[in-house]
Each structure stands twice: as structure tokens, then as C-alpha cells.
Amino acid sequence: MASELLHLERKDWEGLKLALIEEIEAHLHPQIQLRIIESLQEKNDIQLIMTTHSPNIGSKIKLKNLFICHNGDVFPMGQGKTKLDESDYKFLERFLDVTKANMFFAKGVILVEGWAEELILPSLAKKIGINLTEKGISIVNVGNTAFLRYCKIFQREDGKNMSIPVAVITDLDIKPDEYKQIDSSKKTERDFCINGEINKRKEKLEGQSVKVFVSPHWTLEYCLMLDNKLRGLLIDAIKSVFDEEKKGETTLKNLEEEIEDILNNSYDAEIATHLYHTIFVKRKISKASAAQYFAELLENNNSINKEYLENIESIQYLLEAIKYVSGSE
């Protein structure tokens, strides 16, 4: 390959300066792939067309130079072809690493804002009979709420439709009314038009094959805690986190006593509110660690099946997102 490139760079060469490279990742170490891609992108006098199935390479190629092949068509990612603007390209070049570049090769994409959703969704999907890996679905953790920039990758300005289903899963981030018992100064659901807030998020992000799925209440963890069985699994997961982080028997005993008192409250919303505040706000337990243990417990619990999950109102937004990207609506 190096010899061919040198040949194309001859000063007396009058022919077409075009190099075609098929799947360069097939015989190269990942670190060498990155070095070669960096080097090739510095060439200005040769046109290079490369094919790849490697997210490693996909993360290194400038987004403007990328073409996605899908359903017998080609979708250039250059400016003017997508809804991305110049600042979006700069942002994505900084943060579009190899884990996120997996979306370029997916048959469906779920964009989430944190580790908890990324860890729990595959287990939840299996429970309703959908294997995300088999379906070619990528879960992309954007690490924040900058969904709009990632959505624009799949939204076209050139009149084409990529038809790759993209689901955005995001929290409502409005505290339930029961939170007034903890801090009366905080705004809660009664201070907002909830449907209006959900529609604002949808209007901002939705378009073409991108759909938005907003939690009906505060956060993912809160929505799980509204159900008695899922709440029990999450509490067991929290105890496992305490064991892993070696916080000590006394600290765990104090937490267990506090949880027991909360479980004696009168109704689900009140229990979920105080549990969430005690565990994730006051004690700052890692949501990612809790999600990992929760996902494992969920998969191994035979009493929680598809029928049971589809009757839990608070998690329907998660199930709807899974069904949308997998074509199982």
C-alpha cells in the first residue's frame, strides 16, 4: 500500500490520483490503524476511498469525510447534507470516540445520557424477548444531555431518509410532589405542565427517523422504584454496591434501617421519592454500579417477565424505545 501511494505521488504522474482501500483493519493492530488514518487524512493531492467495518477507524475519520452505506444507498456526512452545523462537527470530533462510533454500523441506535440506562436496557430488552445485540442495535452513552448534536447525524438536509431508527431516552428531571416533604422550596410536578415539558423535548429533538422517549417521572431510578418488585431488586443492588465498595457493616446496617423505615410509608410515590433521595442524593451511591447489579438481578429473576413489565406504567417509555429501534412496535 505504501508503495502504491508513493507511486501516485510521482511528480510526472498525469493519471487519476485515486486510491481505493478495502477494510484496512483486517490485518492491522488497532493502534497502527489509528496512526495510518491520521497519516492518510493529511494527504491533500490524492483522493482516498476506504471501506471499513471498524468503529476504531470510524472514530478517527473526520465526520465530514464519512459516508454511511445503508439499504443500497450512500449518505455523506458532509456539511449541507445533514442538519449538523460547523459547531456540531467541532463538538463531535472532540467526543465521538470508538464507543460512540459504533452507531455508524448499527441497524438501530439508542441514545442515552448515562451509564445506568446503558447497563439496564439490554437486560430489560431480553426480558421482553428482544436481544439488542442480535438485532444490531447500538446503545450510545452520550454522557450528558447534548442529544441534539448526535440526532443531527441521522437527520438529513439533502432530502434523503436514512431510515435508521434512532431512539433518544431522557429523564423528565422534575421532582415529584412528594419531594416537598424533603424540601418545600423545590419546584415539583405541580409547578409544571408535565405534558408540555415532555413535548418541548420532543419538538427539540425529533425528526425523520429520530424519536424521543421521556420518562414520565423524575429519573430512571425513580421510575424503577415505583414498582414493588423492581424496587426490591434495586435495593438489593444497592446493598451489593456497599459490599463492593467496603463501606462497612455499620454503615450498611444504618442504611438498611433507614430503608426499612421508608418502606413503611403509605404509597409508592412517597416510598420512591424518599428512597431516591436517601440513596442517590444524600448518600451519593453510584448509579452506574447500582445499575450493573440491578441488570444482573433482573435477568436472573424468573418472576419478572414480559407480561409483568408491560403492565408497569412508569417504565413503558423504555420498552417503547426498545421496540421502536428493533422494529418490534
Rank of each mutant, 00 (worst) to 15 (best):
N102T: 15
K180P: 03
S39T: 08
L234R: 03
R201Y: 05
T170E: 08
E249D: 14
F280V: 00
G108F: 11
K152P: 10
A295I: 01
H27Q: 02
E86L: 12
D236N: 12
A291I: 01
P30Y: 08
I279F: 08
E113R: 06
E258G: 04
N300Y: 04
I322T: 10
K239C: 03
K135I: 09
L230P: 09
K135D: 13
L92R: 04
I128G: 13
D177S: 12
I139A: 03
E320P: 01
G114V: 12
P55A: 09
K282L: 13
Q41S: 11
R201I: 08
I46Y: 06
D261S: 13
E25L: 02
T219R: 13
L8C: 02
S209M: 11
N131F: 10
K83I: 07
L309P: 11
A26M: 07
V241C: 14
R94K: 14
E310N: 14
V166L: 01
K247D: 05
T133D: 14
Q155V: 11
Y308P: 01
F242W: 14
F95A: 09
W218S: 03
I322V: 15
T273M: 02
H7S: 14
K187S: 09
K83R: 15
P122F: 05
D191N: 15
T188P: 01
H274E: 14
L172F: 08
N300P: 01
I120D: 02
E329H: 14
A237T: 00
I37M: 10
T82S: 13
A167M: 07
E178S: 11
K287A: 01
K127I: 09
L318F: 11
L275N: 06
L319R: 04
M162T: 14
T250I: 15
G159W: 01
R149D: 07
E23C: 00
N311K: 14
F213V: 02
E221Q: 00
